[in-house]
Nucleic acid binder design. Structure first.
Lengths: 217, 217
DNA sequence: CAGCATCCGCTTTGATACTG
DNA sequence: CAGTATCAAAGCGGATGCTG
């Protein structure tokens, strides 16, 4: 990207991460940890191969990521955030919070990845009964299951199947998210294709922190 | 901008504010309040006139800004952030913090505006003696003076001349910022063209919160 | 003069094909 | 798997002109 040529911290930041795709590459590495080229590309459906290569070079040159040789068993290089790149997490988190109301609209061709949903859920939910015994909920949506766990009064998510979930939700991502964020009643979610197993009161326990309204558009 | 077509909160946010110039337009309205078209353009040196008009339309359509008729004395329209637009402030603040280390490099053609510097200074400084009597420092750099004031243990900045500043700093923006952020000794700053009037201990009092290192590059 | 719209050359991006 | 190469399409920058 051409520099904005402004002596301003925001403009200088955008000179580095303001290019198209760039912040989404950082997102992939932030959410999934060290990734191979192919893994990054899988998280960016639609990016041109040459653009990904170019962005990775630029990010490396800017000190945001490093390309490192993977440990012996693997024969390929890995990309990883540097400490400087890790410091972009607050930006990603704020953009996630700001974008949550926009998740009420899911376009036909939108790609879905469970790790995107998991990070949004983790930021928005809270354990309303921190002193009760821990609970586990499994979401079956996106490209792999998501486990939601209460953890010392906070909510943690991770990918992969849960062992003995107290509740299980399966269905399309939008009504599941609507349900998790408290924008949708269980009955409405079920009418939209969500199936629920477990004690419904669990949903009240791990309800959304605050429910922002959707924009006009 | 073309949509990323991802069902991800970050990607949805960037669908709205990820275009070139867009977040800088939001910055102008966030830092300066309601602005006329011309004021916005003055804060975005280099933007093509048609692009600014188009971006303003898009932001209005997305519910981030509103175009309102100014009160009677003025015969022109004003642009202002909506509550939804105000919620982008955390993003702007994080980008400011992340960009501060990049301010060590000032390119030849970089435009300078005092309100950009003031917001960065406000975010980075802290009053180390909150119980002492308030102090005021005037910075003479950029396109207008900046006033730094201690305010209930916090640091506030505003634009315009100070009445009776306890200290005054004048000179080029980079060494002044370096001095404020504790990256530069007063002697070095003076060697770079900064002139200082007042009690030097004031600088220690309103020192930087933490001094992040500059990136490699 | 403020607030755009139009035009045009240049740069960036997207889609696909190809290679070690 | 991890890119590079190519080329058409879209986006941007700068100049200019129009309208109240």
């Amino acid at each position: 990207m051409r520099s904005y040529d402004e002596y301003c911290a925001i403009a200088k930041s955008l000179d580095v991460v303001g290019d198209r795709w760039t912040l989404l590459i950082v997102r992939e590495l932030a959410l999934r940890g060290a990734c191979r080229y192919t893994d990054v590309r899988n998280g960016l459906p639609g990016i041109a191969s040459n653009l990904l290569a170019e962005r990775l070079r630029e990010l490396e040159h800017a000190g945001v990521i490093v390309r490192e040789d993977a440990p012996p068993p693997i024969a390929t290089a890995l990309f990883r955030l540097t400490p400087r790149g890790e410091q972009l997490r607050p930006v990603l988190e704020d953009l996630t919070r700001w974008g949550i109301p926009l998740m009420t609209e899911q376009n036909a061709g939108d790609a879905v990845r469970s790790h995107w949903l998991a990070s949004a859920v983790e930021l928005m939910l809270t354990d309303r009964q921190p002193d009760a015994s821990p609970v586990t909920v499994e979401l079956q949506t996106g490209d792999q299951p998501i486990v939601i766990e209460t953890h010392d009064g906070a909510i943690r998510t991770r990918l992969g199947p849960a062992e003995n979930p107290d509740a299980t939700l399966a269905g399309p991502p939008r009504p599941i998210l609507g349900l998790m964020l408290g924008l949708l009643e269980l009955a409405h979610a079920e009418a939209s294709g969500v199936s629920y197993q477990g004690d419904p009161s669990i949903l009240d326990r791990i309800g959304a922190r605050t429910v922002p309204g959707a924009p006009p558009s």
